[in-house]
Simulated assay, not measured.
Amino acid sequence: MNGDDETIRLPVPMIGYGVPTDPCLTLHRSLPETAIGPPYFYYENVALAPKGVWDTIKRFLYDVEPEFVDSKCFCAAARKRGYVHNLPIRNRFPLLPFPPRTIHEALPLTKKWWPSWDSRTKLKFLQTCIGSAILTERIRKSLEDWDDAPPSHVQKYVLDECRKWNLVWVGRNKVAPLEPDEVEMLLGFSSCL
């Protein structure tokens, strides 16, 4: 590959070809001559696709290596994705304003209700289905008998469900799913757009 050679800095795994605000490690990328410059292409898929999927995608896009990114490096939710593209990687810059990077930065009103035994700072991932009212009521009932921290088996049950469904604390012993506007905000969409 003797095409467009670009060297940039890479902070952590799953960060892609670097973060403009926090460069650290050096990474080298070469593009084949046929993939340099316009027309640009950009193809996205889940990072943890089944074996062979990324090789197939690359084969149809000039054998360009994918760029893998976990959104938890940029916002309060994890989302591991891969991108095959021929976009320039030099002189990248962040879009402003920066999205919130933790749950409490994103949803500050939840901090008042957040129990000390729930150590989550990031949401697991964003999904299209949400936890039901039946589930949130079941969680409330499992916690109502405890003034302080519930026993470890109750904590485990509650935390497993909160992680699975991205539930946040909205009252004493009360969790709720994210609202659509909260999901948009976590993804970096401004409420004033």
Rank of each mutant, 00 (worst) to 15 (best):
L126W: 09
K112R: 11
K141Q: 14
P97W: 03
R163W: 03
D118P: 01
V158M: 00
S116P: 00
T110S: 15
L123W: 12
R101F: 08
Q155S: 11
K156E: 04
Q155D: 06
D145H: 10
V158C: 02
L96P: 00
K112S: 13
D147W: 04
K156Y: 06
C162Q: 03
L95P: 07
C129Y: 14
F125E: 09
S132L: 09
K112M: 06
K156S: 07
P100N: 10
W146H: 15
L107P: 03
P151E: 13
T136N: 01
T110M: 10
R101I: 08
T136Y: 01
R90D: 14
G131L: 01
S119T: 15
H153C: 12
P151T: 00
T128E: 15
R120L: 10
K112L: 06
W114D: 07
R138T: 11
K112W: 07
K124F: 12
G131D: 09
T136V: 00
K124P: 07
S132Y: 07
H153W: 09
P99M: 00
K141S: 13
L135F: 09
L159C: 05
L95V: 08
K141Y: 05
T136P: 12
E161A: 07
V158W: 06
R90L: 15
R163E: 14
D147L: 05
W113C: 02
W114R: 10
S132H: 13
L143N: 03
T121V: 15
L96Y: 14
E137D: 14
L159T: 09
F93R: 14
L143D: 00
A149R: 13
T102N: 06
I134Y: 14
D147K: 15
D148C: 12
C129R: 12
K111S: 08
R120D: 07
S119Q: 10
G131S: 00
E105L: 10
A133H: 13
K122P: 04
K122N: 02
E105I: 04
W146T: 10
R140V: 07
H104C: 06
W113K: 05
I139L: 07
R101K: 14
I139V: 11
H153F: 00
P150M: 10
C129H: 13
T102F: 00
P108Q: 02
W117T: 06
L159F: 06
D148V: 03
T102L: 02
V158T: 06
R163I: 13
L143Y: 03
L95A: 04
I103T: 04
I139A: 13
V158F: 03
R120S: 08
W117C: 00
S116E: 14
D145C: 12
